[in-house]
Simulated assay, not measured.
Amino acid sequence: MEDGEGPTKQTTREDMAPDSAEQSDKMHWTLHVDGSAGETGRGAGVVLHGLEGFTLEYALRLDFKASNNEVEYEALLAGLSLATELGAGKLKVYSDSQLIVNQVNGIYEAKGPRMKRYLQKVKEKLQRMREVEILQVPRDMNNRADALSKMASEETHDFGTILTEILPHPSIDEVQVLEIPPGPNWMDPIMRYLKDGVLPEDKLEARRLTARAAHYLVHGPRLYKRSYT
């Protein structure tokens, strides 16, 4: 009405939905994964976004023969491992692979012994997490993970400050591992200082430690070196 009088508009469920969804997303960690298999090699890209603006980019080069779908599974497994290690409680996973997403969600059946083993490996990791949702997105909404996977597939690419690793064998293969007893290492004093504020009694060593620790941060059980970003 022109004079401004009249019934006040009531708030509806539709009015509240966007804000509620936005608040819900802030409570979740988000994980984007993608795999790339081509003539130059095979790679996986992972982008993990955590709480308070935490972001981790990870490129994984696969040093073995693998199909496109197997590479996509390796990307998903790598991302779930990182999210678990960093303590992600609620996690939303985004992948542009329709096959992998639907197999994990039980819509498609995994065919072939290798695909079944990959699916079983993913389910084992999901059981260790509190709340996980796996969604399919268009490739253009997964572009950073896609770029990392393509970079990882190129053997000569320079990753700069991006966390990288070479996977020598498929994750579904059993590999004998020789366990090394844990012992003191160079990270221990930095971890104690960053977590508990403990410094050496020697003032010179204390100054050196504080200067060195400024280049690192602790997230979960791991020590990370700060990058330019």
Rank of each mutant, 00 (worst) to 15 (best):
M1S: 10
E2L: 02
G4A: 04
E5R: 03
G6E: 06
P7D: 07
P7N: 07
T8L: 11
K9W: 08
K9F: 09
T11M: 12
E14P: 00
D15M: 12
A17L: 15
S20D: 06
A21D: 08
D25W: 05
K26D: 12
M27A: 15
M27E: 15
W29K: 11
V33L: 02
V33E: 00
D34F: 04
G35E: 00
S36N: 07
G38I: 04
T40D: 13
G43F: 01
A44Q: 07
V46G: 03
V47L: 15
L48D: 00
G50P: 12
G50K: 04
E52K: 11
G53F: 08
A59S: 14
A59Y: 06
L62W: 03
D63Q: 14
F64C: 01
K65P: 08
A66W: 01
A66K: 00
S67L: 03
V71Y: 00
V71L: 01
L77N: 04
A78C: 10
S81F: 04
E85Q: 14
G87K: 07
L91I: 09
K92Q: 13
S95F: 03
N102Q: 15
V104T: 08
G106A: 06
I107H: 12
I107T: 14
Y108I: 09
P113G: 02
R114E: 13
M115C: 05
K116F: 06
Q120Y: 06
V122T: 07
K123Y: 00
E124I: 05
L126V: 09
R130C: 11
Q136S: 02
V137R: 01
R139T: 02
N142R: 05
A145V: 03
A147K: 15
M151N: 06
M151C: 08
E154R: 14
H157E: 11
T161S: 13
L163R: 10
L163Q: 12
T164P: 09
I166V: 15
L167I: 02
P168V: 08
V177A: 05
P182V: 15
P184R: 14
W186R: 08
I190P: 01
M191Q: 09
M191P: 00
M191W: 09
R192T: 01
D196V: 10
G197Q: 09
V198W: 11
L199S: 06
D202E: 13
E205S: 13
E205K: 15
R208E: 14
L209N: 10
T210S: 12
R212Q: 15
A214Y: 00
V218N: 07
R222Y: 13
S227I: 04
T229H: 14
